[in-house]
Amino acid sequence: MLVLSRRVGERLIIGDNIVITVIDVRSDGVRIGIDAPRDVRVNRAEVLEAVKQANLEAASADDDAVDGLRALRPPTPEA
């Protein structure tokens, strides 16, 4: 991991087209601005982790949930 010190208004450049600018420094955190092309996804790590966790919980159905869903299915016609 590269660790740099920056002051308000100073920038970092990643590759040819991503610019990170320090907007504000407060006692409880740092505000940064990210200028990147639209095709580059920029996400907060904690949001991605929360979505991943929610997906895991939704995908792990217990037996009662499965039985409840089966009860909603209409009966199949007998041959």
Rank of each mutant, 00 (worst) to 15 (best):
L2M: 02
L2T: 02
V3P: 04
V3F: 07
V3W: 00
L4S: 03
L4R: 00
L4W: 00
G9M: 02
G9R: 02
E10P: 01
E10W: 01
R11P: 02
L12W: 02
L12H: 02
L12S: 04
L12G: 02
I14M: 09
G15A: 03
G15S: 01
G15E: 07
G15L: 09
N17F: 06
I18Y: 05
I18V: 15
I18H: 05
V19I: 14
V19Y: 03
V19W: 02
I20P: 08
T21P: 03
T21H: 03
V22I: 15
V22R: 04
I23F: 01
I23K: 15
I23T: 13
D24Y: 09
D24V: 01
V25R: 05
S27C: 14
S27M: 12
G29K: 01
V30R: 13
R31H: 08
D35M: 05
A36M: 01
P37V: 04
R38G: 15
R38K: 05
D39P: 00
V40I: 13
V40Q: 03
V40P: 05
E46M: 12
V47N: 12
V47M: 02
L48N: 09
E49K: 12
E49C: 07
A50I: 01
A50Q: 12
K52Q: 09
K52E: 12
Q53C: 04
N55Y: 07
N55T: 10
N55F: 08
L56A: 09
L56V: 09
L56C: 03
E57V: 04
A59D: 11
S60C: 05
S60L: 10
A61F: 09
A61I: 05
A61T: 13
A61M: 14
D62R: 02
D62M: 06
A65Y: 07
D67K: 14
G68I: 00
R70F: 11
R73K: 13
P74H: 07
P74G: 14
P74M: 04
P75R: 15
T76A: 15
P77Y: 05
E78S: 15
A79F: 13
